[in-house]
């Protein structure tokens, strides 16, 4: 809305009278326009309506927060902060702790990041710096398609394609080559932490790579030329002219991917094995915050059980809010903040 001019502007009906200086007959067009009011009421109500809708976004976030707090108070009162460090999950005796889920969530998300970030960076570098121009649009389009595939479809594919591969090919191979690390022990059924991490990595790749690409494109061309002009090879130009200038944004993009991985539900639920225990082995079945809600919420009979699940949802909500907020600030800092840093 325009700032009020220093002079006070008051609509007066007197202004509607035609000016005496024009004695000529008034045209129908002018006559009509002179009868139209200032439209101030319509303008004000329109602005208010738009503002209300915009504020509804705040309201939604606060509302989610409030509802989750309200509904988890039983569990909050019963377990307090210990809830997040206890390993027990026994609906029958009413003993709840979220540690196995936190472990499962962190393990799968971080493992997924470890797999996805180098690949995403590679794709972004390829797309912005190396890719022949005619290939650029189709490849970035394909990676965007990857982002549009619903979680449940990834899950379906994972259940019928990835799980058998893990069980019969990749699993035994890992045992043979990396078995000594102790991360690949125990029975391998194909479902478990590792499978969940792989499907998560596939799912967050497009997000990270397309954001990283945007950020790297935002680096001014002069930066690249400056480095090239010093006799750098292309890789040195990318490392010094591009990556160094956009690292904050890239960290932000990675965190956005992390936010998505933490909250990802369906695909993970379908392949992680759903067992609330903490194992070192990546073949072992696990459980994540999101998947325990998806699996047990509908059957949560007792009030405390229900409340404990809501508290898990609350934790997930708060963590993703923080991760996303920090990530957005980082991405914004690069893509809209002054990109032309003096060199």
């Amino acid at each position: 809305m325009p700032v009020k001019p220093a002079v006070s502007v008051v609509a007066s009906p007197a202004a509607e009278k035609t000016t005496p200086s024009s004695p000529a007959p008034v045209s129908p067009v002018r006559e009509f326009l002179n009868t139209r009011g200032s439209g101030r009421l319509a303008d004000t109500s329109f602005a208010a309506l738009m503002l209300a809708c915009a504020c509804s976004i705040f309201v939604i976030v606060l509302f989610i927060f409030w509802i989750l707090i309200q509904n988890s108070h039983l569990s909050l009162a019963a377990f307090g902060w210990k809830f997040f460090t206890r390993e027990a999950w026994d609906p029958v005796s009413g003993d709840f702790g979220a540690l196995p889920f936190i472990y499962g969530t962190l393990a799968t998300s971080l493992l997924a990041l470890a797999m996805a970030v180098p690949l995403a960076l590679g794709v972004a570098i390829f797309l912005t710096e190396l890719c022949p121009r005619p290939l650029r649009a189709p490849i970035s389009f394909l990676t965007e398609l990857l982002a549009a595939i619903p979680s449940v479809v990834y899950g379906l594919w994972a259940v019928f394609v990835l799980v058998p591969i893990m069980r019969d090919t990749l699993g035994p191979f890992l045992v043979k080559t990396l078995g000594w690390t102790g991360f690949f022990e125990g029975a391998n059924f194909g479902v478990g932490l590792l499978t969940a991490s792989i499907i998560l990595a596939i799912m967050i790749l497009p997000i990270i790579s397309s954001l990283t690409r945007d950020i790297m494109t935002a680096v001014p061309h002069s930066q690249r030329e400056a480095v090239l002009a010093l006799g750098a090879t292309r890789w040195e130009m990318i490392r010094i002219g591009v990556l160094r200038n956009s690292r904050i944004g890239i960290v932000g993009a990675v965190m956005l991917g992390l936010g998505r991985a933490l909250g990802e539900t369906m695909a993970v639920t379908m392949v992680i094995g759903n067992h609330p225990e903490i194992h070192k082995s990546l073949f072992a079945p696990g459980y994540t915050l999101a998947s325990v809600i998806a699996n047990e919420f509908a059957e949560a009979t007792g009030d405390l059980y229900y409340s404990a699940l809501i508290e898990i949802g609350l934790a997930l909500f708060l963590v993703t809010i923080v991760v996303n907020a920090v990530a957005r600030l980082m991405v914004w800092a690069v893509t809209r903040g002054a990109p032309s840093r003096a060199s």
Binding site: I64, I293, G313, L316, R328
Partner: peptide
């Protein structure tokens, strides 16, 4: 602030939306 909140809301896991509306 609204723009920022919208971006953050975009990142809230959908399962959280589900249990909120359930409650």
């Amino acid at each position: 602030a609204v723009r920022f909140t919208a971006d953050v809301l975009n990142g809230v896991p959908s399962i959280v939306m589900g249990i909120t509306i359930y409650s």
